[in-house]
Nucleic acid binder design. Structure first.
Lengths: 338, 338
DNA sequence: CTGTTAGCGCCTTCAG
DNA sequence: CTGAAGGCGCTAACAG
């Protein structure tokens, strides 16, 4: 007659109640800090909780109260540093509360997003944070028809479902263009990565082109990699771009990873950065600022975006009438490469 | 007569059952793919699910079956790339299953780990994955007394509670020492970051010292930063180390971030890497391999560690008698900087 | 192959 | 300030 020690053998409210000599309900009140309880009672309950090592079962709580203390997070990937940073901001904001993040990774794939969203929804989170505005119709429907709060983050160039927190990548790209023009560069090239998945990078690109157009010029040439951004890719792509266009005077990169790789190419090829070729990135990553010449770039604050999204979401339980757009802004980092 | 779609009005098994004209239980069976069901019935149920947009409530399921389809993950931080990579591996393995990861970030703080563990436990996960062996007594107790499976990952230099997946950092450090000695370096320095929090870095350091000692030599000098690792820190620390010890012939860094920073210092200071000063890292990050001279380092595979941990954990529901240690190994990357 | 009957552990409502 | 019912949505036995 073996009693297997299963999870179900964890102490419950009843156990605590018995030990403390009170009703189940009173324990529940103490745990949730709700209603008024005599100090003596509270202490006795707390003591019982302590000695039993009682941990409330959230699944039961969630079921009974239909409110889960869970925030669902949908990220396209974790390999691009910006997403872990975003997640850090989310976790930081959540730490102050009793909410937890349930994270899903979509691999930049809208079908997967849809599938993962529905498994997140199975836990009945109170809110969802998702990167970007691109969703399948069904995803949009699920997001819309459930009462839960929704934050679309990183980007504000679009129509939010509920809350949008981020920056205008179009504007950031535009300002990149203005900056380069202002510095006197005219033979400008572009090195990018696969933006069928990364809509934000495309927006920056479009902003950049617009700025150049307004200045009466345009991109001399561009090199686009098929895969995701990386230093290696940036390095290779700058190489092939320069092979075609040896006398560019500046190159804008889709982000800092790519630009850092570009910097490495210049080192290897003996190209004097800025003097002969200016480099410009996006993100403001630490690595870019550690380069022998600090990278000229645009700093966006992913941590703040994540934190702000959580704060805005948890402000009200119910989705407000009006859509909210929070512009967390960005900052041109002059650096020394452009 | 419209009905507002609130969370509580989300369709349940009963709704589906009614629409399909079967019992609640039959629907449940279809959803869980359990037991045998007539094809016609199944189809009718599936259709009902489809039209109602039914998403099973996991909280209820978890409560009823005392099994949660949740894996708790405890990470010290997300700012060091290795942890997102680990998490990617975990997510990749979990994608094949119907499990989900519930992640907590401990900030390298054992007290916080304890606190976060207990909030993870509130969801009654079936398993916990945690980085490293350092836990408070209470954490250890919680981990031990609950029936759930536990994987301690990244590191195998310790006594696992249940499963350990990772590599021997002591050995990796030792092999770093052997490598440098083998290359003929004798005036070797060390640049590290705060290892009161990063026990693995300290193990590598110790392994390194041991290798040098066995070769009849020892570290000439070392520079330790107070904060976390970063390229900037590596750059600064190498600078100050060289100020004290101008004629080192090699420097081992606590990891690739630091080593990359060291590389940048050499560029700025006009020090010929390898010819005058060899650099050696740890991790095998992409950035190191994109440098003008690919970084000499040790590659550990965080993705595989995460994936393996999940696989091992989900193999058996119950903790086996014997502790399991899975050595995922590492690989010396010769590179061109040492 | 399908339905019935009890809970899972907690929270809400209503009494006291 | 505290207790007693009832039920959240689902699953685990059983029956049939």
């Amino acid at each position: 007659m073996r009693e297997i020690m299963t999870q179900s053998s964890m102490p419950t409210l009843v156990h605590v109640a018995r030990l403390a000599g009170v009703s189940e309900n009173t324990v529940s009140r103490v745990v949730r800090n709700k209603g008024s309880i005599a100090d003596i009672t509270r202490e006795r309950v707390l003591a019982a909780i302590q000695t039993l090592g009682y941990v409330p079962n959230r699944a039961a709580g969630s079921l009974a109260s239909s409110g889960s203390f869970l925030v669902g997070v949908l990220l396209p990937s974790l390999s691009n540093v910006v997403f872990p940073e975003l997640l850090e901001g989310i976790h930081a904001a959540l730490r102050q509360t009793s909410y937890q993040a349930l994270v899903g990774v979509t691999d930049y794939n809208e079908e997967q997003e849809e599938q993962i969203l529905s498994s997140l929804l199975a836990w009945r989170p109170v809110a969802i944070i998702t990167a970007g505005f691109d969703h399948t119709a069904k995803t949009r429907l699920m997001l819309d028809s459930s009462a839960l709060r929704v934050a679309e983050v990183m980007d504000i160039d679009g129509e939010p479902i509920d809350v949008a927190v981020g920056l205008s990548h179009r504007m950031a790209g535009y300002d990149t263009g203005r900056f380069l023009i202002g510095r006197g560069y005219r033979r400008i090239g572009y090195v990018g990565h696969d933006w069928t998945t990364d809509r934000r990078a495309r927006h920056r690109y479009e902003g950049l082109r617009q700025a150049l157009a307004e200045a009466g010029t345009s991109l001399v040439d561009e090199a686009l990699a098929a895969g995701p951004s990386s230093a290696t890719t940036g390095r290779e792509m700058l190489g092939s771009l320069l092979r075609r266009q040896p006398n560019l005077d500046a190159v804008a990169f889709s982000n800092d990873d790519m630009a850092t790789g570009g910097f490495f190419h210049c080192l290897s090829a003996g190209i004097a950065v800025r003097e002969r070729l200016a480099l410009f990135g996006f993100n403001g990553l630490e690595i870019g600022q550690a380069l022998p010449l600090p990278l000229s770039t645009v700093r966006s604050n992913r941590f703040v975006i994540g934190k702000t999204a959580v704060e805005r979401l948890l402000e009200h339980r119910v989705r407000p009438e009006d859509r909210i757009v929070v512009d967390t802004g960005y900052e041109i980092v002059e650096g020394a490469t452009a």
